[in-house]
Design a protein around this nucleic acid. Sequence first.
DNA 1: CTTAGCACTTAGGCATGGTGAGTGCTAACC
DNA 2: GGTTAGCACTCACCATGCCTAAGTGCTAAG
Lengths: 337, 337
Amino acid sequence: MSEPRRLEVLRAIVEDYVHSREPVGSKALVERHQLGVSSATIRNDMAALEEEGLIVAPHTSAGRIPTDKGYRLFVDRISDVKPLSAAERRAIQTLLEGAEDLDDVMERTVRLLSQLTNQVAVVQYPHLGNARVRHIEFVLLAPAQVLVVLISTTGRVEQRVITMPDQVAEQDLLELRQHFLAALGGTPLTRITGQLAECLATVPAQKRRNAGALARCLEQLAGINREDRMVMAGTANLARSTVDFPLTIGPILEALEEQVVMLRLLSEMEQDARGVSVRIGRENPHGSLSEASVVATGYGPDSSAKVGVLGPTRMDYPNTMATVRAVARYLSRILNN
Amino acid sequence: MSEPRRLEVLRAIVEDYVHSREPVGSKALVERHQLGVSSATIRNDMAALEEEGLIVAPHTSAGRIPTDKGYRLFVDRISDVKPLSAAERRAIQTLLEGAEDLDDVMERTVRLLSQLTNQVAVVQYPHLGNARVRHIEFVLLAPAQVLVVLISTTGRVEQRVITMPDQVAEQDLLELRQHFLAALGGTPLTRITGQLAECLATVPAQKRRNAGALARCLEQLAGINREDRMVMAGTANLARSTVDFPLTIGPILEALEEQVVMLRLLSEMEQDARGVSVRIGRENPHGSLSEASVVATGYGPDSSAKVGVLGPTRMDYPNTMATVRAVARYLSRILNN
DNA sequence: CTTAGCACTTAGGCATGGTGAGTGCTAACC
DNA sequence: GGTTAGCACTCACCATGCCTAAGTGCTAAG
């Protein structure tokens, strides 16, 4: 009972099951694959695979289906990441290059990914990373209303309108802006709190209240960590793929709506050597995802933000992994500009 | 066979069916409601109602369920809009008042609405309405990179970073800004294209290319009509309510993801005298929504942006209508500040 | 180690029959 | 006229039993 053939049998089972959605038996297996042995031999192999917990029979006399562990072995040791077709590459490239701003890029990415994989796609907004303060603007909208704009070195712009405690003149705002900018310019967004305190100390007392309000606002703007935002698309695919066991779609939709759950899950996923990370079925922390798999990878300069898809454990891993990886690469490239 | 009693029977059927999800028969009806007549009489009434197309029997010997037309009559003539409980009112108020910016308000609104109604909630971003240009800012980020900011009188801020065709000095930008602002200040966002053309004509030739780039960008920013954006929550509720007939959930999810479909649907809905608008089953344009109902209403100063929910035709209309209306009112109030 | 053969298990399809809910109709009643 | 009781009739639904096809594990031989 040779080890390599047993793996080959597992691969065949996974591939057939992913394709047909039905338990696959020994006879069907020898018919559809060139294994060079009889069904009886396959049965022996299958018994061994079942012994190892890689496949199970749903009932006494049905074929076998892979377990989570079986998929895991398949993903880790057996499957190759299939290269994408040229057409797919072109589609990704042209679609992403047409994007106008960051929101648009994110939007297009999820749509594209969900269409290419026929699954639910998810993308996390890029990290602030080591972004620093590049510009600050205070714009007087009304006697006591100020638009505060904070621009980081990554090109990210955050803004908010606040109401000032005291009336404020245009000239004052300009001065305050210079003052803050001088103190904060080049400071990492994660560190501006300390600088702001120092900075405030040197402001003349009668402007202190206004300056304090502005400072608090800047602090909040810097704290808006986009990394905890995500975009999603393709939930309709979920309905299609769970048509056989619609019991689980509710919990999965709930988990997806609870973005916190997905975000934690994504950030926990470390990518392996091949550049993608896979969580299969019960490997997922959240119980409601016990029949779902997540394929994700990082993108961007430090690969800290994640992009990926979610689908049934019975998914086409090689293809999905390839697509996710490709999209992440193009995404990184686009964002470098 | 009195007309009022027949309507009473229809009401009873609708209420029971919404509650139990099962066809309701004549006997059960007289037991659960004080109709003062026997089941035989009810049968006669039911036959008449079926004749009018207000109810149907799924098969020969089951109870009756309301048709779309039956729900329509129920909504239009029979049901009252139930007032919300004090607790619900408080919940709405406190939750919405805690919001920080517009995005946050939208987000909280859909979550709240989907939780209160146990359905899918949808809210359209407010219209630009008759917003006018209030401020323009050009911020030099790098030798040829400029952040363009457009602020409207409604407090909306749109921004984008563009790359200039030629190098540009800080001073030039300041002048261009003054120039544009002088020409555009107070112009409705919908009309700035003409003004921009005039304005460009008076720019010195060597600055023309840069000015043109900035003008195009401003035009685009003004054109970003937030009205064609919407936020959605509670898709998981959809799965729960379609647990009986999961066939339709796929198409509905698709329609929801195709935001265009929903947006057109929402904007087509005119609210009636009671301040809410209802589309029932096949009244919806899109075929995939033939088993769904939409309850929506306008909010904001001119009630042009819409907020509403989507659920199965078998929904608790009185409650849903009351909740949608209440949320819309609080939403309008919040946005007035 | 591989294979053929065989006994064994079981899901799923199909016909059968019984049951209960609900109907429509008719004839009597107020 | 509207209302009611009674009754025959219709189906969905369920349980039962039977059969078949698929697939297995095991054993003994190659």
